[in-house]
């Protein structure tokens, strides 16, 4: 806890000069309504980035992640599990359910996708920085738990008045970058 407080205090100090127009990450309001996103997966050994786009819609029990291009996928992420419908097909559970799925239980995925950064320090060592252009802040997250370490080496979150992008660096060198737009088209 002491370490978290020191990190947060340091982060606050760093944030002050650059954030006159920005909102401190821990004070961000959670996303509401639908927002367009572009997801770019860069995989080692794969010749081009794998880009998908769609809308993310925060819900009371989780997040609705709808990919519209290049394939239609509706993914419902809730604390009890993930369900997915592909190209209008039936909704089916994906992967382990509930807290048995480290992707849900260990990453804080639902909070991240909702733009709620207030509980990050429970799961990650947080290092805060300043983004020069455009003006804003950055958060570098290092997983605390052993369960995530083999898969994720770090997560970078950028934003100003809201979360604008999330970049997940996988342990094997692959990356997933999600750019969130302000609202849906």
């Amino acid at each position: 806890m002491k370490r978290v407080l020191i990190v947060l205090a340091g982060a606050l100090a760093l944030a002050l000069p650059a954030s006159a127009a920005c909102v401190a990450p821990e004070q961000l309001a959670a996303l509401t309504g639908s927002h367009d996103f572009v997801q770019t997966r860069t995989l080692k050994g794969v010749s081009r980035p794998l880009v998908s786009s769609g809308q993310v819609t925060p819900q009371s029990d989780g997040v609705l992640w709808t990919v519209t291009h290049p394939i239609e996928i509706v993914t419902h992420v809730t604390p009890t599990g993930i369900t997915q419908s592909i190209e209008g097909g039936p909704e089916q559970p994906v992967g382990p359910s509930g807290s048995n799925n480290p992707f849900i239980s260990e990453t804080g995925l639902i909070e991240l996708l909702k733009g709620d950064l207030s509980k990050l320090d429970q799961r990650y060592d947080v290092t805060r920085g300043v983004r020069a252009r455009p003006e804003g802040w950055t958060l570098q997250l290092k997983p605390k738990g052993a369960a995530l370490a083999p898969y994720i080496s770090g997560i970078a979150v950028e934003g100003c008045k809201r979360v604008e992008s999330i970049t997940v660096e996988q342990a094997n060198g692959d990356t997933i970058r999600i750019d969130l737009k302000d609202g849906a088209a």
């Binding site: 997801q39 997966r41 995989l43 080692k44 050994g45 794969v46 794998l50 998908s52 992640w65 990919v67 290049p70 394939i71 996928i73 993914t75 992420v77 993930i82 997915q84 592909i86 994906v94 992967g95 992707f103 995925l109 996708l113 898969y151 996988q170 094997n172 060198g173 692959d174 997933i176 999600i178």
Partner: peptide
Amino acid sequence: ADIYSVTGAVTG
């Protein structure tokens, strides 16, 4: 779907 969804556990 694994490749393009946010939850897919795929690696290069």
